[in-house]
Amino acid sequence: MFNSMRQVIKEQIEHKDLIIRMASFDIKGMYQLHYLGSLWQFLNPVIQIAIYWVVFGLGIRGGSPVITTVGEVPFFLWMLMGLIPWFFINPSMLQGSNSVFQKMNLVSKMNFPVSLLPTIKIVGNSLQFFILMILLCIVLLIYGFYPTMYFIQLLYYLVCLFSFLFAFTLFSSTIATLVRDYQSFLQSMVRMILYLSPVLWDPAGDRVPDWVTNVLQLNPIYYIIEGFRDSFLARQWFFEDPVYLCYFWALTLTLMFIGSKVHLKFRENFMDYL
């Protein structure tokens, strides 16, 4: 039953060198024609952070801090902990889904495992993500938040993040190749997901009814982003909420299962759909 999943994962492991090197070529090609080069990888997020902070932090919240179970946290910091993973999730989801359609022409003429294409996009985007995470840690230190034992579970949430992105892009890259409308649909969906996730506002706050929070928590990105905050703010361990943990992994594995099944089924005929 899990044969297809095993095969797809095996392909990733066998070609891990290829993935990393193709990702580095991807990054190189992206900003080749820009004068500022890969500096844009950091200028873009900085500009966006500034806008969101002004609009949501100063404008809507009037500069008030976010109240969490471990006390008050400045909104700027709270937002960064959500935005930085989001800057990784957003392009990875979109580019990963588009990757097969985009590269099919190039790749089909050689014996190249197509299942690597979404992963290459994820790996390519993760360099920026890791650097921004390190910068975030420095900002946290400046604000006086020192690392605790809870930092260790960042590793767990990174595994969650990559597993989910892998499962999602594997599934959605196949669908996006077969049905082109899906990519446009996804673009608007991702924009919506930003506001349905606890990135810019706190859906668990007092003003939101419980049932709304429950529905919003079904979104797997909610789990990941709150997980990052749990680790940074030393709020709770990941095993303290076993139902949410099981739900997230059930969702991710189901997605990965369907994704690899559909991928293997259609990959020999991808060229017929272009």
Binding site: D210, V243, Y244, L251, T254, F257, K261
Partner: peptide, 22 residues
């Protein structure tokens, strides 16, 4: 998807638990 349908059971189960705030 065929035989894999049983895989959805945990997802639905935990999803329902989440929805009702367990």
């Amino acid at each position: 998807v065929g035989k894999g349908i049983g895989l959805f059971i945990p997802l639905i189960l935990f999803g329902a638990l989440m929805l009702f705030g367990y």
